[in-house]
Simulated assay, not measured.
Amino acid sequence: MTSKPLRIGVVAGEPSGDVLAAGMIAQIKQQHPDAIIEGIGGDHMIAAGCHSLFDMETLSVMGLFEVLSHLPAILKIKKGLIAHFEKHPPDIFVGVDAPDFNLRIEKALKQKGIKTVHYVSPTVWAWRESRIHNIARATHCVLGLFPFEEQVYQKYQVPYRFVGHTLADSIELTPAQQPAREALGLDLTAPVMAVLPGSRNGEVSKLLPIFLATIDCVLQQKPDCRFVIAAANQHRFSFIDSFLKEHAEQLYRQGTIVLTKGNARQAMIASDVILLASGTATLEAMLCKRPMVAAYKLSAMTYKVMQRLYKAPFFTLPNLLANKQIVPELLQDEVNPENLSAHLLELLEGNNEALIHTFTEIHQTLAQNADKVSAQAVLDLIPHV
């Protein structure tokens, strides 16, 4: 008598979660090639062997109030997922980031007797620490990316495992710049700036016009500078391509601005400095050992709420990991072309050896073979495996 194949539910809500989950799925598939893995994922998860039941793009929304217009579609997906997993119960369910969505799924499934894991700790160490009680009710274990998170879970006796970050495992300690420039067709001698306006539609809509104006400011001081804008996916590529054709046609046509899709890491490695939306991209930029300026703009209402609730001293991952400001981080009205270009030019012209040394030390801390460790942590919770 042959045993049934493993059934594992996995849901990621955005591109960064798609990457994390894909590595974990690939490791599970190595041990259990016939495992049935389904849920919601992007291109990376699908390539690793996950069947996506819904389009991940629907969940890629950021902000407390920005999500409201998407709520009917999100609630429909939530209902559909729970119904599917009740009909086809997985041996375990893994919610990858997207806590406002995934913790609700996890709680519903846990109440049905299904094991659940939440991969990527919600920012309970930064705001709304009381959320940890809901996390405990929703999941059997939290897999965390960063070592500083563990103390808050120990405080509340919630199962937690530090697994490191898959990006730290996949990026070399000293990435080679020249091959990346050659692959993107960039000048090997001119200064290069990578520009990453975000992975979500709302981020790009807010930041791209400001980032484009910042490019103009930099060009006034560095006319030989070249810019490579990295689009997170086809949705973002199409939007940015249209925007550039309308607002920066000459720079785009003559190759001063290059647009690439799905090559964010290559663009970062090829660069001398990076302008980017705050988020997981700042971690990747740090691991690529490139100086950066991070920016973010929230809706006015979300910002007012976050001013009251957010207690961490920084909002970018490099600064949080270093426990001090090592990269410029600009928020709301600070995010303007004059401020951004001033910081970028300073980094272009300065000595960044101490910064790169700090980046390297953090990189070594985060390199824990995360894909393998997270996969084993999930399999360890399945009784019959």
Score class of each variant (00 low, 15 high):
residue 233 N to S: 15
residue 222 K to Q: 14
residue 375 A to C: 04
residue 327 V to M: 11
residue 251 L to F: 04
residue 122 P to N: 08
residue 235 H to E: 15
residue 286 M to Q: 10
residue 301 M to L: 15
residue 95 G to L: 07
residue 187 D to W: 05
residue 225 C to S: 12
residue 232 A to T: 07
residue 295 A to Y: 04
residue 47 A to E: 13
residue 351 N to M: 08
residue 341 S to T: 06
residue 207 L to R: 00
residue 81 L to H: 03
residue 342 A to P: 00
residue 40 I to V: 14
residue 106 E to K: 10
residue 328 P to V: 13
residue 3 S to Q: 14
residue 77 I to T: 04
residue 306 M to H: 06
residue 111 Q to R: 15
residue 271 S to G: 04
residue 125 W to F: 06
residue 359 F to G: 05
residue 187 D to S: 15
residue 371 D to V: 01
residue 309 L to M: 15
residue 148 F to V: 04
residue 331 L to Y: 00
residue 108 A to K: 15
residue 349 E to L: 14
residue 31 Q to R: 15
residue 265 R to E: 09
residue 96 V to K: 01
residue 160 Y to A: 05
residue 22 A to G: 01
residue 169 D to V: 03
residue 365 T to P: 03
residue 191 P to Y: 08
residue 332 Q to D: 07
residue 60 S to T: 14
residue 215 I to D: 05
residue 168 A to W: 00
residue 221 Q to N: 12
residue 374 S to C: 10
residue 237 F to Q: 15
residue 112 K to P: 06
residue 30 Q to P: 02
residue 45 M to N: 09
residue 253 R to P: 01
residue 36 I to H: 12
residue 214 T to I: 06
residue 171 I to L: 14
residue 256 T to C: 13
residue 58 T to I: 15
residue 249 E to R: 15
residue 344 L to F: 02
residue 375 A to G: 00
residue 363 H to A: 11
residue 221 Q to I: 11
residue 302 T to I: 09
residue 118 H to F: 10
residue 266 Q to C: 14
residue 325 Q to C: 11
residue 344 L to A: 12
residue 263 N to K: 15
residue 216 D to M: 11
residue 92 I to P: 00
residue 146 F to Y: 13
residue 96 V to T: 01
residue 262 G to C: 07
residue 312 A to P: 09
residue 248 A to Y: 04
residue 182 E to G: 06
residue 179 P to C: 07
residue 204 V to P: 05
residue 208 L to I: 11
residue 365 T to W: 02
residue 279 G to V: 00
residue 243 F to I: 03
residue 16 S to L: 10
residue 166 T to S: 14
residue 367 A to Y: 01
residue 40 I to Q: 07
residue 43 D to I: 12
residue 178 Q to I: 14
residue 315 F to I: 15
residue 358 T to C: 12
residue 246 E to V: 10
residue 328 P to T: 12
residue 376 Q to M: 08
residue 119 Y to S: 02
residue 164 G to R: 08
residue 206 K to G: 03
residue 144 G to C: 12
residue 260 T to E: 13
residue 202 G to Y: 07
residue 89 P to Y: 03
residue 232 A to H: 05
residue 100 D to S: 11
residue 230 A to H: 03
residue 261 K to C: 14
residue 304 K to P: 01
